[in-house]
Design a protein around this nucleic acid. Structure first.
Lengths: 233, 233
DNA sequence: CAGTGGTCTAGACCACGTG
DNA sequence: ACGTGGTCTAGACCACTGA
């Protein structure tokens, strides 16, 4: 019984939802009714309900009441880091290119820049022990005050690279995951003789105003790359 | 200026973190100091800080103070639904098997059951318009009181199927994403003549006590399946 | 010891929705 | 008009950390 009142309320309502006593669409007790039921002040009750709202168990509608939500069965939490031993067994990297390039038309549109902008291209092979596990390509916009610092950058993740130049908390990130077959160049870099499917992770980084900051493509050998995600709560 | 005080506090502190005025590890003003700064009561200040704690911007340590966190640059939100037009362009399904089977050793260990348990196997082809986009295999434990209801189940997602028998809010879900080449059977079902890489999504469903409820495998043609995820906030 | 965050109360005023 | 949730106050007591 050491649980604070507001957490008891949370636990009780969650339990009722999980047992089916409260179904999606049902109204829960009003705040005042909960105050009476738990002999608590309204602020305490509201603190509990705020948690349930935040975890998407219920929705509160001003002037009406609070209602049990449909479960959001589609939502997962994914941890991704192109250099993570636990995720991809990747534990080292070798830089094969770090250059300022003239962007291709595709890159120009992906980064939303004009043709006279320069772009930094970073290419790496990511290793799992001695074996090449992935080919990694990053692009980001080159500004004058931005030295390439190849040595510093070699072992970083993409957000890590970008955060050399910007506050990381300002980053927005999109990930797109697909399966592809390797082209000749990637086959060569990864030393592939047979046909191996690739797990491709595309990262797009944006600043707080949704201006593109960089584009990353990582091509994992299908027998190395595995991503995992889990439902929250 | 219509913003409530507690949201102003949230916005101000977020801004300071994003601009680098507050760096990871830095202490923020104490609650009492913030009360003075914003001419607000402590409960109002705490309401703001609670949001920052929840969104992982800061951590509060009793007796000491609140501190700016290292950004969690690995965390993404993934929406997945094997039948979603927006995610996979899948808009219909055809059932090719719905049967009670004797589980293989692999299945027995994956579902953590004994050999005398029966398992329901559901096999479907998922279509994008007229084209087969994925081969879908589900397994879940068969209990006596569980009719198969093939027609009802045909167009459901895996959580949808399971929720026919259990409260959905109690579900825990794991997703594993990988790239594979099709075996003969899958090639046949998807009508593949050339070598096409597959994006494979493995779903494991658990109840609230982490007891396995089901195993799902969905094999998307690489040119159809694309998953996307994004950083939160 | 003084300062911090964690919990809680008993009020208040507001905007909103329904009868 | 009444009940609802949303915001806010000015206190209170507690457990904890650090000097």
């Amino acid at each position: 019984m050491g649980l604070p009142i507001y957490l008891q309320i949370v636990a009780d309502i969650k339990a009722k939802i999980k047992k089916g006593i409260l179904k999606p669409g049902d109204a829960i007790l009003s705040e005042n009714a909960l105050c009476e039921a738990y002999n608590a002040s309204r602020m305490t009750v509201r603190k509990g309900l705020a948690i349930l709202v935040n975890e998407r168990y219920i929705t509160s509608i001003p002037g009406k009441g609070s209602y049990v939500n449909e479960p959001d069965s589609e939502k997962y939490v994914l941890h991704y880091n192109e250099m993570s031993a636990t995720i991809n067994r990747v534990n080292s990297a070798r830089l094969i290119e770090a250059a300022v390039i003239v962007p291709s038309p595709d890159l120009i549109s992906a980064l939303n820049i004009t043709a006279n902008h320069k772009v930094i291209s970073i290419r790496r092979i990511l290793y799992s022990g001695d074996e090449p596990a992935a080919f990694d390509q990053k692009y980001f916009i080159h500004y004058e005050e931005m030295p390439i610092m190849a040595e510093e950058i070699k072992d970083l993740t993409f957000p890590g690279m970008i955060s050399k130049y910007t506050r990381l908390f300002a980053l927005k990130k999109d990930l797109t995951i697909s399966a592809q077959l390797p082209d000749e160049e990637i086959s060569k870099h990864l030393g592939l003789n047979t046909v191996v499917p690739l797990l491709v992770v595309e990262q797009k980084l944006f600043d707080n105003d949704n201006k593109p900051l960089g584009l990353g493509l990582t091509y994992y050998r299908g027998d190395f790359g595995k991503l995992s995600a889990h439902s929250d709560f």
